[in-house]
Structures are given as structure tokens and as C-alpha cells.
Amino acid sequence: NQASVVANQLIPINTALTLVMMRSEVVTPVGIPADDIPRLVSMQVNRAVPLGTTLMPDMVKGYP
């Protein structure tokens, strides 16, 4: 099973992602692959992302 990117904390709308905000976890449904975490750094979320939420491609501005 492939690990996905999961919010490690509440991420407010328009926040630029940092490594501490994300963790990898095997979840269903599958979200953004954990391998993409380095690419996500400094990209902004377009909505508030609660703790434990799987990051989906449509939540991150400019992804992929």
C-alpha cells in the first residue's frame, strides 16, 4: 500500500506547507503520494485542512 500525505496539524487556508505540517500514512482513500512531500513544501493549501486529513490534489494550489 502506498503512503499518502496527511496533515500533521490544522493547516489554515492559504498557508504555505512546511515539512512539520505533513506526515506520511497509509490511508483510504489514497491522497497525494508521500513521495511528493518535498515538492509540496512552500505550496499553499486552498482550504483549511484539519489535523489528520489526507491531502488531495485539489487542496493544494499548483499541484501537480
Rank of each mutant, 00 (worst) to 15 (best):
V26H: 11
P64R: 03
V27T: 09
T15I: 08
A3T: 11
P33T: 10
T28H: 13
S24K: 13
P64I: 14
M43S: 07
G62Q: 07
L19W: 14
T15H: 09
D36S: 08
Q2P: 12
R47Q: 10
G62H: 14
K61D: 14
M43W: 12
V27Q: 04
M56H: 09
A7G: 03
A3K: 12
G52F: 05
V5C: 04
A34Q: 05
P57F: 06
T18W: 03
L19P: 10
P29F: 04
V26Q: 13
I32V: 08
M56T: 12
K61C: 04
P50H: 14
Q44L: 10
Q44H: 15
V49M: 06
A16M: 11
V6H: 02
A7I: 06
P64E: 15
G31I: 01
Q44N: 08
V30M: 10
I37L: 12
K61S: 10
T54Y: 02
I13Q: 14
I11L: 09
V49Q: 02
A16W: 12
V41P: 02
P64T: 15
T28C: 04
M56R: 09
A3C: 06
I13T: 10
P38C: 04
V60L: 07
P50Y: 15
L10S: 12
T53C: 05
V27Y: 02
P33L: 08
T53L: 08
N1W: 13
A48R: 12
N46M: 13
P33C: 04
P57Y: 12
L10N: 13
V5Y: 02
G62S: 14
V5K: 01
N1C: 04
T54L: 04
V20R: 08
P64S: 13
R47F: 08
E25P: 00
Y63H: 05
V5W: 02
A48G: 09
L51E: 13
L10T: 13
K61I: 15
A7C: 04
N1G: 13
P33I: 08
G31H: 01
I37C: 04
L17K: 00
N14V: 03
P29Y: 03
R23T: 09
N8V: 08
M43F: 10
V27S: 05
I13G: 13
P12C: 04
V49E: 02
A7N: 01
A7F: 02
P57I: 06
V26N: 11
T28P: 00
M21C: 03
I13F: 12
D58H: 12
